[in-house]
Write a protein that binds this DNA or RNA. Structure first.
Lengths: 229, 229
DNA sequence: ATATTTTTATGCGACATCGCAAATAAATAT
DNA sequence: ATATTTATTTGCGATGTCGCATAAAAATAT
């Protein structure tokens, strides 16, 4: 059962987070002009929260400026226009999730079975969908990018890329799992993958509509019991 | 196999559509003042298209006025403010889908089996998600309501109601199906229902991201073959 | 110290959006 | 015919939003 170790998926480039202005004196000879008064990553985190809860169109640069304490011209100089800022915030969001999935979608030693791994995956997603506050989060892509995709080619593109990443991840995962005999040779890895991604989008919708962590876990448990008996 | 006929679900109130101004002289003694120069239902159809493709915040009353030929004050007098107009358009959308599901989610005589019924259901949903143009539609609720829900209690409420309607519909459907022995007594109707609703939301997301009718049908076929062998 | 570079602060101008108010138009009731 | 009712048209004012331009500040290079 420990040959599940070979489940790990190829690394997804995970942008350098937590780049503190002061702490980053590791090797940088410090640039020429006036130094930035804010940490771009911290700003992007706040920006993500705003877009996530209010949507792209409903979030003004003034809102962002007020919430981050960074003036509009500084935002523009650092991130570009509103769309570029949105894309950077979403890229960070996606990398954060991807990094967690890289960790969780592999075997943690013997006794770790397929159903356990899949349940861990859903724990990660449920956490990201429900957060730590009372806010109804859901998936930041589904909540905001679905809305904007037809009007912004770049947003459509990143949405498609995210879907493809999830598909590729799970198709690869279940193909490997089948090769090792953890699912029957009569089952289709593609179908298993579709079940997982489908349930994922369903959880995202329900979370946005107010479902609790427990509600979502109950749904996941019932489904994984059925899929991995 | 024809006892599947008892599958039909309770009627969902389906608002009177196609109310033509002239054709509706059936019984109406015609109201007092100046008659309306437009059909509210036709307007709502156009309004839905606008909101669907551009989202709530990105669609201005001026856009709607231009697309429908109805001036802003007339829109306000007929439908109320922007939020009320959105809700009425979405109610019409939902009723349209519900009406189709009432028809399709019941047995059409002997030879109509569970998998056939579920496939018919997905045909309806795929049609509504892909439409007849080149536009990437998806689900109007997921594309727009997920975005606005945290900021508008009424939109959150109609989103929750729609989710509950689908859940109730399929839980009832599979409970009946199980009582009649069309699915094993060891299977959980709730889980089957979750599989269907999950796949539904997945199709909606994929459609919005550009998946074709054929792409979606392939996913549905693979899944229903697995669920109803 | 002075110049150079980069970021920050302030503010203006153009435009879109919404709600509302007043005047006009088209029907029925008496 | 006149009055009444309802819809439509036109237009104004307040607000929000974005992009840009200019001035000030804070660092390094020489």
């Amino acid at each position: 059962m420990d040959d599940l170790k070979t489940f790990e998926l190829p690394d997804v480039t995970c942008g350098g987070q937590g780049t503190d202005v002061e702490a980053c004196a590791c090797e940088t000879p410090r640039k020429r002009g006036r130094p930035r008064a804010f940490d771009p990553d911290v700003v992007l985190e706040t920006v993500l929260e705003l877009f996530w809860m209010r949507g792209f169109a409903n979030t003004s640069l003034d809102d962002i400026s007020a919430a981050t304490g960074v003036s509009r011209p500084s935002l523009a100089a650092t991130f570009g226009d509103k769309e570029a800022l949105y894309l950077k915030a979403m890229e960070r969001y996606r990398n954060g999730i991807s990094g967690q999935l890289d960790t969780v979608l592999q075997c943690n030693g013997p006794g770790d079975n397929l159903r356990g791994i899949v349940n861990r995956y859903f724990d990660v997603m449920i956490s990201s969908y429900t957060g730590e506050t009372e806010d109804c989060l859901g998936c930041a892509f589904m909540c905001t990018a679905l809305n904007e995709a037809p009007r912004h080619e770049s947003i459509m593109s990143v949405l498609q890329g995210t879907i493809e990443e999830f598909d590729a991840r799970f198709e690869h995962f279940f193909t490997k799992a089948q090769e090792m005999g953890h699912i029957g040779s009569n089952q289709d890895p593609k179908v298993m993958s579709q079940m997982i991604t489908s349930l994922t989008s369903s959880l995202a919708v329900r979370a946005r509509a107010g479902a609790s962590r427990e509600d979502l876990k109950a749904i996941v448990d019932a489904t994984t019991s059925f899929l991995f008996p």
